[in-house]
């Protein structure tokens, strides 16, 4: 499975309620580098957006709010989106993603330079 297969997939809660679509995948660079000039990335989780599977266009970072009105428009487009951690994903199948019982929805925003 490659990332493109996952992006746009429908996301369901443990009780089969529709939650949204996968808009993005969040990686953290905290692994030992696999080689020179490479960074060790670890999949932290998926960003689920209830209204659109489109790109955040960079507005997942909380401190970016220009230019008016596009920043506001794109943030509104992704209102209600949340981050689910890798550990909270039960099934990552083709077309759909199902979350574990008692999963927690985190704020998808990134602080500062987006390296958090």
């Amino acid at each position: 499975m490659i990332l493109t297969d996952v992006l746009g997939s429908r996301v369901y809660g443990p009780d089969a309620t529709y939650l949204g679509r996968v808009a993005d995948a969040r990686f953290v660079l905290d692994q030992p580098p696999p080689g020179q000039l490479l960074a060790g990335a670890r999949l932290q989780g998926l960003i689920v957006s209830p209204h659109s599977a489109g790109s955040f266009m960079g507005y997942e970072r909380n401190n970016v709010n220009r230019p008016w009105p596009w920043a506001q428009l794109l943030k509104w487009w992704h209102r209600g989106s949340f981050l689910v951690l890798w550990a909270d994903i039960k099934v990552m199948g083709p077309e759909t993603v199902t979350l574990r019982e008692g999963f927690s929805a985190h704020d998808p925003g990134l602080e500062g330079a987006g390296t958090a």
Binding site: G58, R61, V64, R66, P67, W68, A113
Partner: peptide, 28 residues
């Protein structure tokens, strides 16, 4: 043109060279 406008406003990329307010009004 929309992606260019968005990135030209991104402080992480552009530092102090982000679009001025006047340019943003004109660009919009």
């Amino acid at each position: 043109y929309l992606p260019i406008l968005i990135v030209a406003n991104d402080p992480q990329y552009m530092g102090t060279n982000v679009n001025s307010r006047t340019i943003n009004v004109a660009a919009n």
